[in-house]
Design a protein around this nucleic acid. Structure first.
Length: 201
DNA sequence: CGTACGATCTGCT
DNA sequence: GCAGATCGTACGA
C-alpha cells in the first residue's frame, strides 16, 4: 500500500523522518522491482536549519526541487559521485526534506547485488545513502519526480519496529554547520535488528 | 572563468 | 581509524 501524499505534506519534518523508519522504499525501472525497509533517516528543517541546502532561503538550480510539494523526490550529487535520495515534505515553497540514509534489502535482492557490484552481507548492502541509491538504481535523472508515480514510491510498514529500537542522534557529516551540527535530527535502527525482525515473521 | 568544497565510500592499517 | 578518490555545484572575480 503506497503512502498517501497527505503523509508528506505535514508540517513537522521530524515526525515524518521518524515515521519513515520501518516503511518500504521501492523502485521499479525497466520492469525490475527493488525495495528495502527504511532503517535510517535525517530531517532537514528548511530555511532555519544551517545544515540544509535551503538554509536562509538559499535557492539554486541544484536545490530547486526542495521547494516542490511534499511527496517529491529530491536527488542531488554529493562528493562528486554519490547520488543522495531525499523525500521533500511540507507544502510547496517550504523546503523541508528527509534524507534516506539506509535501508534493509527486501525485493529484488539479486538485482541490487548486481548493481552494487559487491559481495557485502545483506545488512551492509544498502547501509549508506550513496550505496542504497546505487542498489535501487536511483540517479539524478529521478530528481523532481513524484512519489505517487510508478518509478519511486514508499509503502506502509512491512514490519513494526519497536520505538525502543529507534535511536535518535546528531546528523552525519554536518560538523561544520555550527549550532545545527548538534540537532538530534537523525533516526536509526540497526540493519541487524531489522534482519532479525524480518526473519521472525 | 577559476577555485574550493562537500548530507560519502572503500580499502588498507 | 584514516587517507584518497573524484567532480558537480556555487560563488566570487
Amino acid at each position: 500500500m503506497k503512502i498517501a501524499q497527505e503523509f508528506y505534506k505535514r508540517k513537522n519534518v521530524l515526525t515524518i523522518a521518524k515515521e519513515l523508519i520501518g516503511k518500504k522504499l521501492c523502485t521499479k525501472f525497466n520492469g525490475q522491482l527493488t525495495s528495502g525497509i527504511i532503517s535510517e533517516t535525517e530531517a532537514y528543517d528548511g530555511i532555519i536549519d544551517r545544515a540544509s541546502h535551503a538554509f536562509n532561503g538559499k535557492r539554486t538550480q541544484r536545490n530547486e526541487t526542495m521547494y516542490a510539494i511534499g511527496g517529491t523526490s529530491y536527488v542531488y550529487i554529493c562528493y562528486g559521485m554519490h547520488h543522495l535520495f531525499n523525500v521533500v515534505t511540507n507544502e510547496k515553497e517550504i523546503p523541508h526534506a528527509v534524507l534516506i540514509r539506509a535501508i534493509y534489502p527486501v525485493d529484488g535482492v539479486n538485482v541490487m547485488y548486481e548493481r552494487r557490484k559487491s559481495n557485502q552481507p545483506i545488512t551492509k548492502l544498502t547501509s549508506g545513502p550513496g550505496t542504497l541509491s546505487v542498489a535501487l538504481g536511483i540517479n539524478k535523472i529521478h530528481d523532481g519526480i513524484k512519489l505517487s508515480g510508478n518509478h519511486i514510491w514508499i509503502e506502509e510498514n512491512a514490519i513494526e519496529i519497536p520505538t525502543s529500537e529507534i535511536k535518535i542522534t546528531k546528523r552525519i557529516g554536518v560538523e561544520s554547520s555550527k549550532e545545527a551540527a548538534d540537532y538530534l535530527y537523525r533516526f536509526v535502527v540497526s540493519n541487524n535488528i531489522v534482519h532479525a525482525l524480518m526473519n521472525k515473521s
